[in-house]
């Protein structure tokens, strides 16, 4: 019983992180209709950024979160303006090829700079933990959980309580309709891409605190973000949370009962099942605009 409780807590912590991590992916997919295969590499880019700031400036990865987000935001603007805009109106296949190439490019650039060694951000509280009755709560996981929760809530508020957020949802729902009421979809694309990439890099900070990383870990993270979006359903912050928690439970429990080696395999099986049986995900909904 204690063990199950412990596993549930682990699932909750990990799942909340997955939810936040996947928001950017789901947002760009839902609003821009771009499946960004480089998304995982953006996350890893964020992890290396936090790592570098930690090594050279002694900056705690939590403190460098805003920096990562801003850096990601600018990068997102740049990619959207100079790359995505060129192919967005062509066949969807072109976008896939472009982001796939971007993924390879980022991974190999990181590999050139940092080599393939596994890096980790060794914060002073990395090994601290607290006993809570029969449970053991590790400090980094709790920290990442709380931060993911706050940041996810912020994204929710942004989308629902601000003019920009409402404009983003309007564009997601109906591009031409949005244009007629004075929202420029092109501008919204830029902003959404910025926010999405910002979320990716910021979650990289958290990822780097949670575990070690190499330049080539991006692919697996893309698959996870994809899975969260498929399972939860594309389109709402709530869907990403549902998908994230689902993936957290799935990974933790298969890891424990079947062995670590089964985690990824089980995720993929589940993803296939969802695509076949419930393609709109747990919560349904396709667009960020639907309420």
């Amino acid at each position: 019983m204690d063990t199950v409780l412990q596993l549930l807590v682990e699932s909750l912590f990990l799942g909340t992180f997955y939810a936040f991590m996947s928001l950017g992916f789901s947002l760009t997919w839902g609003v821009l209709n771009i499946i960004n295969l480089a998304y995982g590499s953006y996350i890893i880019l964020g992890a290396y950024l936090a790592y570098t700031l930690h090594i050279y400036l002694g900056l705690d990865p939590v403190l460098s979160l805003p920096l990562s987000f801003t850096g990601g935001f600018l990068l997102g603007l740049f990619f959207q303006r100079f790359l995505m805009n060129r192919v967005m109106n062509l066949e969807p296949f072109m976008v896939l090829i472009l982001t796939f190439g971007l993924d390879i490019f980022i991974a190999n650039a990181l590999n050139l700079i940092f080599r393939a060694d596994i890096r980790s951000i060794d914060v002073p509280y990395a090994e601290r933990s607290h006993l809570l009755g029969p449970l053991i709560i590790t400090e980094v996981k709790a920290l990442v959980f709380v931060l993911s929760l706050i940041l996810t809530a912020l994204v929710y508020l942004l989308l629902h309580r601000t003019w920009t957020g409402r404009a983003i949802r309007a564009v997601a729902l109906d591009r031409e309709g949005a244009r007629t009421v004075g929202v420029s979809p092109e501008k919204i694309f830029l902003i959404t891409s910025g926010i999405g990439t910002g979320i990716a890099l910021a979650s990289g900070n958290l990822y780097g605190v949670l575990q070690g990383f190499t330049p080539f870990d991006g692919g697996m993270l893309t698959v996870k973000a994809f899975l969260v979006s498929i399972v939860g359903g594309l389109g709402r912050v709530e869907s990403a949370v549902a998908g994230g928690l689902f993936l957290g439970v799935l990974e933790v429990f298969t890891g424990f009962y079947l062995g670590e080696g089964w985690k990824f395999f089980a995720s993929l099986i589940v993803m296939f099942l969802f695509l076949i049986l419930r393609p709109r995900g747990l919560l349904g909904g396709k667009y960020y605009g639907e309420t």
């Binding site: 063990t3 412990q6 596993l7 682990e10 596994i118 980790s120 949670l210 575990q211 070690g212 990383f213 190499t214 933790v252 890891g255 424990f256 062995g259 670590e260 080696g261």
Partner: peptide, 17 residues
């Protein structure tokens, strides 16, 4: 007596055991 995949970076489930 349990193995974990190459390159695994989180051994939480083993640690709980």
């Amino acid at each position: 007596f349990e193995g974990y995949p190459k390159g695994a970076q989180d051994l939480s489930s083993l640690m709980i055991k």
